[in-house]
Design a binder for these strands. Structure first.
Lengths: 220, 220
DNA sequence: TGTTGTGAAAACCTTCACAGCG
DNA sequence: CGCTGTGAAGGTTTTCACAACA
């Protein structure tokens, strides 16, 4: 088991929160603050102070009872923990509405993740540069993904093409997939899959909106 | 506390899975199957059979040991549970790349959720019909939201406008928000908020892609 | 006083395993 | 036999609560 730097073992939820903390800390740092207390960070992240302290314990970071946490040291530590030593190459498959929104969103992003190529089946899109990203045909996806050194893939194709796309990405060396298609991907367990199913999310919001907060479960 | 039809108490995770089951069941039904077993549904949803049975227990649905679950009755039951008696009105704020992708995605969706209006600050978009949806100015958002009877809102504006937008939606009667802005919204607890933070999700995928499946936690 | 770090407890969620039944 | 429904067990995540310290 990979022992990361120090402390315990980050689960999916912990990783998510660390990522949120980092963004907040960058903002806090830019605002000029040198230190931050757990309850501050917690309030901004929408979690409890105890949760923040646990999470930081997980990555082996300590603060001081009097001054709290050193903002820039903490940003660095989270970076050490979450980011690859250099950077990671990401490819996108499917340059429809969702794909283009993602490209626009990630254009000129932080240095540790970069979309290095996109793929689409539409010949009208292939070999053009869309939102600053070169669009390749889906035919030689595996080879091109390998060439781009992508370890991460984003799937934004229609549901019925998702499984096939996922396999090609995997064969090209991808080990993590962010899947926007409403399909459960069947892949070897060493490929990490994160599903973002907008319909499901919206249905959930609609459900709990209707329940109001009659039951407290709806909250948090 | 609102007692829903029968059985227990659906938490966020249960609701999410029910929504997934429903879509699978619709597909299964269209393929001609009348019944389905828990392990079938489970495999397609990427969960365990025991989980499926528990979830159905939660909504008070029973199958038969010999034939499994009646597909169309189950679809109906999930609908009774998840959906509003008639339908729910949804509004979208922010008709940029993400907003337009969402409009395109939900155009001509199922009958129980419909985007009835969009809002944007850009005068070039206001009063036009984009992806089949009328775009209103942000000025009279509260009144218009109320007029549209929206209980659900989608926020797809830049982060620094999100909190203000959320308050206006809330004042207009919205009780559930799907938030694509990278901001924690501070709202009364009776407003349910679902955050979709793409950067955070991608960072998590990148993290676990790198860990490979060295540790089993990365899986599932 | 106020903070952090953390063992212990509580809460929550999933799986096991088996009775019951067609 | 193979399935469902479910009490009980197991696992994970969050919170509590307090010692230690400035």
């Amino acid at each position: 088991m990979a022992d990361r730097s120090a402390g315990g073992f980050a689960t999916r939820k912990v990783v998510k929160r660390l990522s949120v903390y980092r963004r907040l800390l960058e903002r806090i740092g830019q605002a000029g603050a040198k230190n931050v207390f757990s309850h501050d960070l917690a309030a901004q992240a929408g979690v409890t102070a105890a949760q923040v302290r646990r999470d930081l314990m997980t990555i082996g970071f300590s603060g001081s009872p009097s001054r709290g946490y050193d903002v820039s040291r903490l940003v660095d530590k989270i970076g050490q923990y979450l980011d690859a030593p250099q950077w990671q190459s990401v490819v996108l498959v499917g340059v429809g509405h969702v794909g283009q929104a993602l490209l626009a969103y990630f254009s000129g992003r932080g240095p540790h993740l970069a979309i290095t190529g996109a793929f689409d089946a539409d010949p009208g899109k292939v070999n053009r540069v869309i939102q600053g990203c070169r669009c390749y045909p889906v035919d030689d996806m595996e080879a091109r993904v390998r060439q781009l050194g992508a370890e991460v893939g984003i799937i934004a194709v229609p549901g019925d093409a998702a499984q096939h796309t996922a396999l090609q990405l995997m064969r090209g060396g991808v080990r993590g997939i962010l899947n926007f298609a409403p399909t459960h991907l069947r892949l070897p367990e060493y490929v990490y899959v994160e599903n973002v199913d907008i319909t499901v999310l919206l249905e959930r919001v609609a459900f709990f909106a209707r329940q109001g907060s009659l039951d407290k479960e709806a909250v948090r």
